[in-house]
Design a protein around this nucleic acid. Structure first.
Lengths: 204, 204
DNA sequence: TTCTAAAATTGAGTCAATTCTGTTTTTATG
DNA sequence: CATAAAAACAGAATTGACTCAATTTTAGAA
């Protein structure tokens, strides 16, 4: 049961994703027609829908890969954070933000975010929510680490703080991808300014 | 130039919105077909597209009315806030949240939010961004008021704090509308818990 | 090898948003 | 009042995501 069929399946998955990624990049999400993706991937339209529930799920698969890379990169910071609360947060969030436009254009992010709120119960909608949670959890882990080191007061509610920091960054990121002319440097500066309030409140 | 034509125009606008609102409520956003809205409003499909760029903009008009009511209600709190930082924030955000499901179902919110990120440059996309800014501004105004009264430290960056509070609430609200079973009371409690960190940091 | 049931693929067909083009209504002017 | 230009309307045609019944391919038993 794991021979030819499984190999073909994996291969078709890959071909579909590659075709879609290329087209999303070149023509934008709306501009990429399923029919064209199917032709590029050398499968039929029906087959695409056998692999993904809808167009959004194809984008979802690409987004998930991207965010998982980001999560991986973040691990390093959590394990070995800068010896200063503000810098630690800035470094972790900086990784998230700088990585974010590596494979995905702002337009792709806009679509992905839109789909995840529009269809929260679709495979991608659930995956996206899980990714958000994973990012929140990583921030919370960083805070816990800083508390352990003694850089953050122990009596701070780490869970609530992690949510606050993530929610703020995420909302700022949403606004960022909504404006094509917005620059990463400005985004990071704005978030730093907002976090400064927190940093002074929680530093040990 | 301001006689019959203008009156008919206003009347058609009203009829379209009323028909759409009723249908969105009964059949959901996706379930409401433009053709049906047109029939209900006694105009043709083409006419609807003469008044609104797309289906989302119709929903947008409804959402805007709702949010403007909320902004109005918020004014009262800003003018006369509870004599305690935590309660003041909780009261204002509480008004936002409690009002939010008055005319709009969670499904309608999901669609509205999705459209506003998907098409940030459409009429509704821009209007939605403006509404977000207005809410942020109102929170900032409350903070300024609390600083004037002496309940919040004067050296706090009111702008950044306002953004932080709004962004966190908004993100929590997004997660709230994504889960049909989520309850308002839990949402408010979670936000209160997050804000507690801020409150202790900024109270004079 | 040959056969059969299960799994997967195909692509023409459906459905609903949006566009397009010709017609009608309104306004402004002589 | 007549009339031409401008604005708005109607609804048929287009478009593109998604479905589904028929066909093909695969796995494994005989």
């Amino acid at each position: 049961m794991s021979g030819l069929r499984a190999r073909q399946k994996a291969d078709r998955h890959r071909r579909i994703i590659e075709a879609a990624a290329a087209l999303f990049r070149d023509a934008g999400y709306e501009g990429a027609k399923i029919e064209t993706i199917a032709a590029q991937a050398e499968v039929s339209v029906g087959t695409i829908y056998n692999y993904y529930q809808n167009k959004g799920d194809i984008l979802g698969a690409i987004v998930s890969m991207e965010v998982n890379e980001v999560l991986n990169a973040g691990q390093g910071v959590v394990a070995n954070p800068p010896a200063n609360v503000g810098d630690a947060l800035d470094t972790l969030l900086g990784i998230y933000i700088e990585h974010s436009l590596h494979y995905l254009s702002k337009e792709m992010w806009r679509q992905a975010m839109a789909i995840s709120t529009q269809l929260p119960d679709s495979p991608f909608g659930q995956a996206y929510t899980a990714l958000d949670r994973a990012l929140t959890e990583q921030i919370r882990a960083l805070i816990a680490r800083l508390q352990a080191i003694g850089l953050v007061r122990r009596d701070i509610d780490g869970q609530a703080l992690g949510e606050l920091v993530f929610n703020n960054m995420n909302m700022m990121f949403i606004e960022f991808v909504k404006r094509d002319e917005a620059r990463i440097a400005e985004l990071r500066a704005a978030i730093r300014r907002q976090n400064r309030i927190l940093v002074t409140a929680i530093a040990a």
